[in-house]
Design a protein around this nucleic acid. Structure first.
Lengths: 335, 335
DNA sequence: CTGAAAGCGCTTACAG
DNA sequence: CTGAAAGCGCTTACAG
């Protein structure tokens, strides 16, 4: 395979001009179909590869989009964000876009140092995946590059975001338990920790309210302390028949705790998790959980950033993504 | 911030020429220190951002490297490959390189369709992370783009690769158990499955041989069948005092099995895992395991690909990366 | 339908 | 130490 074949080379080979070759190869009009076919064939034979730098220089479009995420998200909640990123790569490719990913160190996030890919105009737009400080977002905003934030938001900021519907998902999960005949339902999670957990808690409350089910404070148990550190779960005196957990990890630990206290899951107590992460499959029994549609997150993220890039659309949008219940073995039907 | 500030703009502002500005900003010699400082300052004030496409067009270097991986690796063994990729991003950034990642669908892998980033010369070199078919590698080889394969190899291929020292790691793990006083040591894993598992098995055998410890076939147990599907582990009549497992997942399942058979880990049986993946932390007791130094994999991958890009180094190298034992709670010292 | 001209924003010799 | 010239490989009007 010869190296560095250019449009010019193909043109000379065929006795036409590079303008025609360019049109033919990029699918533009202004070339007869016969010529186009011949050009495409020759290009292939000569092993032509287009030089996207040259194209970018001329068109002011790199055909790349950037992902910015932080170390944290590739560690802790890893599988969730890994799934989102994977789906973003796939989705981007469908649109003939490539994606450059940068993981921000804590230091970079603190110093508001923008990644090289921004400063060198290597991307047309940016996806911020997972919570990043508001100051950083402000810094990026000044940069006048289109961007969309994924899986978080700041209400004081007018930026495009793609969100999970935590509130509705948790409401659905709780309703699902109620449909299964549960009337005493607890919640496991520390609502002081994040806005997502609050939303999940309030969705749970809504479902209870709707069915006039009262809740007791005993039924609210903690999986982590106010610093976010994992703690030993303390079971209440009287167990409810089911728990909605703020995440699969909490569900996993709760099941462990119940099991070691000689309770059986789901016979004595049903458990529903959140996130559909490894923990839910590894656990015995396997955990019924809420799956966030990461493919949809990816799809909306990409389509929104494309809109912003192409239309310079200045109004901002908040897109909410659906969830679904994955039924496994940790919930039982009450008689 | 004004958009599209170019070298020319800075030059005009300062009454010099863009050549001088270029030299000043790229740290080349041929500019007085005074002028350089003034240029850098003005560039900053004007909000200059270099256009890397223009640079790439001229220099034939994009400053990007590509990662090719498959859907599989972002799912199954997810945390391991996620860690490798994360460290690659970080390491690349240290060298002022950006990374474009592409995940290959099964279809693309089958059809030997090279990713867009290759065909459009968006990257200077490529890292193949996780096993990909030999045909695909051959296709890539024809392309004459520098590449390095990470965490696998084919002995029939002369390509650069970065490998885990499975053999030595498993040898160390087994020796560690022997030092702790264990004399009856089993292995959990299906050696028909992959070359890595074979290496791990043989490292285990070497340690036994070295200490003249005989092994019985009863002590070799399976976590998966020959198709790679997870199966119910069958414990031998007489339990050894310790098991070396081919991966953390196997260790996790084995502990579960032992626990439910009323054995205590590590009191009745010690367990050592492999990979230092979520399972090893989630398990009770936490699993002592072998950690592959993913930072080193990243470091060597990047430095090797840079060598290949810059020197057009045609000889190929096989680099082996160290491992370390992470001591947790699943191994006990024999008296 | 086809082509001649200009230009995107840099860097690289080379000349002064 | 500084600058004039050429060129990387495309695409975009515009002219024929």
């Amino acid at each position: 395979m010869k190296k560095n074949v250019t449009l010019q080379d193909i043109a000379e080979e065929l006795g036409v001009t590079k303008v025609t070759v360019s049109k033919a190869l990029s699918g533009k009009e202004g070339v007869s179909e016969d010529l186009r076919k011949k050009i495409i064939k020759t290009a292939e034979e000569m092993g032509y590869m287009m030089n996207s730098s040259a194209k970018a220089l001329k068109t002011h479009r790199t055909g790349n989009i950037g992902i910015i995420t932080t170390e944290l998200f590739l560690e802790e909640d890893e599988s969730f964000y890994t799934k989102i990123c994977k789906n973003i790569y796939l989705e981007a490719n469908k649109h003939m876009l490539d994606v450059i990913v940068t993981v921000l160190t804590k230091k970079e996030e603190k110093s508001l140092e923008l990644p090289q890919m921004c400063k060198e105009r290597k991307v047309d737009g940016i996806l911020l995946v997972g919570q990043i400080s508001i100051e950083y977002i402000l810094a990026l905003k000044k940069f006048e590059i289109p961007f969309v934030i994924v899986d978080f938001y700041y209400k004081e900021l007018e930026v495009d975001c793609i969100l999970t519907d935590n509130y509705f998902a948790s409401y659905s999960a709780t309703s699902y338990l109620i449909e299964k005949g549960h009337k005493e339902i607890g919640f496991c999670g520390n609502i002081k920790l994040t806005s997502s957990i609050q939303d999940r808690y309030l969705g749970y409350i809504k479902a209870l309210m709707e069915h006039s089910i009262s809740t007791s404070n005993d039924y609210l148990i903690l999986d982590r302390n106010d610093k976010g550190e994992i703690i030993d779960i303390v079971l209440p005196e009287k167990l409810p028949t089911a728990y909605v957990c703020n995440c699969d990890r909490a569900a996993y630990e709760l099941i462990k705790k119940l099991t070691s206290a000689k309770y059986s899951v789901p016979d004595d107590c049903s458990i529903i998790g959140f996130d559909d992460v490894q923990h839910s499959i590894i656990s015995t029994p396997k955990i019924t959980t809420i799956r966030v549609k990461t493919e949809d997150i990816a799809k909306y993220s990409i389509s929104r950033i494309i809109e912003k890039i192409t239309k310079q659309d200045s109004e901002f949008k908040r897109i909410v993504v659906d969830t679904e219940i994955i039924e496994r073995d940790s919930v039982r039907k009450m008689i």
